[in-house]
Design a protein around this nucleic acid. Structure first.
Length: 609
RNA sequence: GGUCCCGUAGCUCAACUGGAUAGAGCAGCUGCCUUCUAAGCAGCAGGUUACAGGUUCGAGUCCUGUCGGGAUCGCCA
């Protein structure tokens, strides 16, 4: 079972098989029952038709049916040149010239594997990253950012018009805590004066607030209060709440400090985003969208979608959908998380009139998005018709070998530290190998960056998004086996071969060679051709599943197969001009597919390493 | 307790959505560099797919139950 090779001639074969069945048995099975799969390498053939699916309808034994269909396919048309039947499996051999034609066509298409944009299609909006402005980004954000960016690229490759958006949670009690601690203990410290990156500086004061609060609470508890009581009586908490009220009231002093500190944070985020290679078409700020949310709540109240409790809080009853009642607005009239999400959704619809909106958010918020979807479907006002367009791309948590990341226990892995650690570790390993001559050059340092980020991105993205994953620092910087650098290495070797071929007079014209003039095709070559021809299907499947892991597994397999081919066969052999040129063409194709696929993962490919 | 996810080799991940003998990598052991980059290739070993039933030509995949792990059920985000 070769799991990662796709069905290249599926359409033609399905048609031919239907034709064969009609001719031999006089019935028309449902095309959905024509199950094709790649032939298990232990058997001879390229594509296997699973006869079981239609055997009942044919009223024939599986083997006999397989033989008749196989015979028909060989006799009629030139696609199938041989067959064999094993139990209920009809193994078909695709004629060589069809593989060659597929390869030739791919070589002539610079965008091989991707689909052209559909004209007039409504855009797909994808939200990812969505940080809070009180702390720097951590490992969890890295998974989110890499996933969001990659899924956006995959959808683009599937012909969709994609808009990447970010929603910054820039307001609320958390940022007030940082502000307050900075006022009290900061002595005017800035990123410039301290040399600390802006987001880390804000995080430093968030932590400082937490420490001060703990001290105060401990004191109060010592005086005999309960934990809950102490939280209510805490002057620090009261000051933070007061600051939030002043912020909502538009107090100029508070607003100015808020803008200043958030400005530092954005500078810090920008540099992390740049290092990760992610970007956005539009950034939304919660401080803008929550106002829209509150407006919609009023409209929803008028339409009786929501109801008000005596204390003034606003609710929605979701028991009909087997959920419970959810608060939409606090008793004091301030908004909660979901309030602003409703507002943001409508603002985005006004902005983009999207056909889909995908939220890349961790699976701990599955419930939240179920609720959001139902609320939007219940609201009138042009809402309900697009509630189906809302999708939650829910991904699993990132664990560490020591267990879960916990901010309390200080086990949270900082994104910037992680990236820098990967880079320096990659540098050390590359130097150890001693392959590149000039370690001080700009190119060398660029290579360390490319390899480090390639390792990190591949390590994160190869795991199916919906699954919880383990981040093992040791393994993430590995360069052997199923890793990013393994793929980069395969690519760099191809580029090296091609550079030499370009300089070799005898074969320098390989690019214009008609591949069908090559008579051979050994096993390794064929396996590679087969796999490369399946690239468009991998892109399509990744788009359907919103899963970069599909692309990751595909491209790893491509690199693995190429390495086997490279190892077993000499590519440039002056004594065999035609063979050399075919193998160079095959190498060009492999390199292009690898470059294209890894681009979808946000990886860069080195010319040499 | 209610709801929802997950359980595959010692470890990290696959398995084309029901198809053939469940595949890779890491870790372990063994080979292969005077020849296009050995960051590579090949081999050995490693499995009752948590467990028990069921559905059918066929189940890691679907259904029921059990056990184990996680998330969520805030006027936090």
């Amino acid at each position: 079972m070769l799991t990662l090779t796709r069905m290249v001639f599926e359409k033609q074969l399905t048609g031919s098989i239907l034709q064969a069945v009609r001719a031999e048995f006089g019935v028309d099975p449902d095309p959905a029952r024509i199950v094709l799969q790649h032939t298990n390498p232990d058997f001879e053939g390229d594509v296997t038709f699973v006869v079981f699916g239609i055997v009942k309808q044919l009223k024939a034994a599986p083997e006999e049916a397989g033989r008749k269909i196989g015979e028909f396919l060989v006799a009629n048309g030139d696609l199938v040149e041989g067959y064999s039947v094993v139990k209920g499996f009809l193994n078909l051999l695709i004629a060589r010239q069809h593989w060659m034609a597929a390869m030739q066509k791919a070589l002539m298409d610079p965008a091989f594997g991707t689909r052209k944009p559909e004209p007039d299609a409504h855009p797909v909006v994808i939200e990812y990253s969505s940080p809070n402005t009180n702390k720097p980004l951590h490992l969890g954000h890295i998974r989110n950012n890499l996933l969001g960016w990659s899924v956006a690229e995959i959808l683009k490759a599937n012909g969709q018009d994609v808009r990447k958006v970010n929603l910054v949670n820039d307001r609320g009690i958390h940022i007030c805590k940082s502000m307050l601690a900075w006022q009290k203990t900061g002595n005017g410290e800035t990123p410039e004066s301290s040399g600390i990156k802006g987001d880390h500086l804000a995080g430093k004061y968030y932590v400082a607030f937490d420490r001060m609060l703990k001290e105060e609470l401990a004191g109060l508890v010592k005086k005999g209060m309960s934990g809950e009581e102490a939280m209510k009586k805490s002057t620090l908490m009261e000051e933070a709440r007061e600051m939030l009220r002043r912020w909502e009231a538009g107090d100029p002093g508070v607003r100015e400090l808020w803008k200043r500190m958030n400005g530092w944070v954005y500078e810090g985020f920008d540099s992390t985003y740049k290092a990760l290679g992610v970007d956005f078409d539009k950034i939304y700020y919660e401080s803008d969208t929550y106002v829209e949310g509150k407006k919609i709540v009023q409209e929803g109240l008028a339409e009786k979608v929501f109801y008000r409790r005596p204390d003034g809080s606003v609710w929605i009853d979701l028991t009909a959908d087997k959920l419970d009642e959810k608060v939409i607005l606090r008793a004091d009239g301030t908004s909660v998380y979901i309030t602003q999400d409703i507002g943001t959704a409508r603002l985005r619809y006004d902005d983009f009139s999207f056909s889909r909106m995908i939220y890349v958010v961790g699976n701990e918020q599955d419930y939240h998005f179920r609720v959001l979807k139902i609320i939007i479907s219940r609201l009138g006002m042009g809402f309900s018709e697009w509630s189906d367009a809302i999708e939650h791309l829910s991904y699993g948590m990132v664990d560490l070998p020591s267990g879960k990341m916990k901010s309390r226990e200080g086990t949270v892995v900082d994104a910037d530290d992680l990236i820098e650690g990967m880079r320096s570790e990659t540098e050390a390993r590359t130097r150890e190998l001693g392959k590149i001559g000039d370690f001080e050059s700009v190119e060398a340092h660029e290579l360390y960056r490319v390899l480090a980020m390639g390792a990190l991105k591949y390590y994160i993205l190869k795991v199916d998004p919906e699954k919880r994953m383990l981040y093992n620092p040791e393994e993430s910087i590995d360069i052997h086996g199923n890793t990013g650098p393994f793929i980069q290495y395969a690519y760099a070797r191809i580029r090296s071969v091609l550079r030499k071929a370009d300089a070799t007079e005898q074969v320098a014209g390989y690019a214009s060679m008609e591949v069908s003039s090559y008579e051979g095709m050994n096993e390794k070559e064929k396996t590679l051709v087969c796999h490369l021809a399946g690239y468009p299907d991998a892109v399509r499947e990744a788009g359907e599943k919103l899963s970069p892991a599909v692309v990751a597994h595909y491209v790893y397999e491509a690199a693995r197969l190429y390495n086997q081919f490279y190892h077993d066969h000499t590519i440039v052999d002056p004594a065999r001009e035609n063979t050399s040129m075919f193998r160079l063409q095959l190498s060009v194709w492999a390199a292009r597919v690898m470059a294209s696929a890894t681009h979808l993962l946000g990886m860069e490919m080195p010319e040499r390493m």
